[in-house]
Design a protein around this nucleic acid. Structure first.
Lengths: 192, 192
DNA sequence: TCAGTACGAGACAGTATCGTACCGAAAGGG
DNA sequence: CCCTTTCGGTACGATACTGTCTCGTACTGA
């Protein structure tokens, strides 16, 4: 009973990532997973619920971990800057290679259409930004950011260009760009 | 001949904006516009082409004009900074109120699914960024940006956070944010 | 007046998806 | 060994959309 449900969700998630939300069809899930229609409808009241479960299953997974830097050491500025660079690079890599590339447009479309998914979107984004905000807090306490800096805005300045390039302009995400963004945020006296 | 085609495109665009790309159906366009099926198929080979025309019709319109600053006057730095602020504010307003809010997720979904639309996306983005890049070129020539600054990256740093907020995080776009972004880009010696 | 054209109206077959209903096989407990 | 639960396998009706086709009408210029 649990197994078949999990298979349905997994198959629907694959379809969502590979072919978009429009491809998450009962028939497609049946054919992909081998689970019978009747079984699917025994677990989910309607096909929309299957899609929701797939969205829920896909997106939280793709939040990059990369913690463990928070060892209470009292790192020096250079270490902090490098940590921030690594974090942003990891985010960029995740944005390029991971499920986000496929799932994000689908999720945005779904949210634009179904406001009841808005809550999920907020949770997902919050979970995504949290590690970065934690790191930025440390960075600010270390004096690398103004004490009154709005960390949310700083996060926007770091993540925004990455997402913009990935989603909108289609330009490549390089590690150089990440480092450059970190520099523009961190050291107010370093132009370019 | 022109009238009915225009009506089809307009109706399809409305459907695209109101109910998403999945709602752009021949039947729906017929019912909305009063144009007959046969007429639609006389103008467009397939329903996908109707959708393409709708996308094309919606998005270029929403590129804000706001030119006319280019009068070869030789403006002073304050004027340039204000012009950049106005331009970014206009972009933000357009992002909030205009068709972009609805159309962009739809377009991103379409592009993710149909690679042949990639070209359209690139054109649209280019047309969207061009005025900003022109302005940035003037700004750089005036010495408000480093002479070797990569204007594309500067544009990313201005537009990225706006699009990120609008598309991903859902946070509000304020004029203060726009001004702040302009400040972080322009004056390398002004932190916060 | 007449022919050409653009257009509306709608029928039609083909396909895809949905959700339901019914049947039979496999498995596990009593 | 039987009985209940769980599940796969279809068959089915109901829609919705597509693309093609035919027919009738209004306009337009020679």
């Amino acid at each position: 009973m649990v197994r078949s449900r999990a298979a349905v969700v997994a198959g629907a998630a694959e379809l969502l990532l590979n072919d978009g939300p429009g491809a998450v069809t009962i028939d497609a899930v049946v054919q992909r997973t081998g689970v019978a229609r009747s079984t699917i409808y025994r677990h989910f009241p309607t096909s929309t619920d299957v899609l929701r479960a797939a969205v829920e299953a896909v997106l939280p997974v793709s939040v990059p971990g990369e913690s463990g830097d928070d060892d209470g050491e009292r790192p020096n500025p250079t270490q902090l800057r490098d940590a921030l660079r690594r974090r942003l690079r990891a985010t960029a890599d995740h944005l390029v290679g991971g499920a986000w590339t496929r799932a994000l447009p689908a999720l945005l479309e779904l949210v634009a259409r179904d406001p009841s998914l808005e809550e999920h979107r907020a949770q997902i984004v919050a979970r995504h930004r949290e590690p970065l905000l934690d790191l930025l807090r440390v960075v600010r306490d270390a004096g690398l950011l103004p004490a009154d800096a709005d960390l949310a805005v700083v996060a926007d300045r770091l993540l925004g260009p990455l997402f913009y390039r990935r989603l909108v302009s289609g330009e490549p995400l390089t590690h150089e760009l990440c480092d450059h963004l970190v520099d523009t945020v961190l050291t107010p006296g370093d132009p370019r």
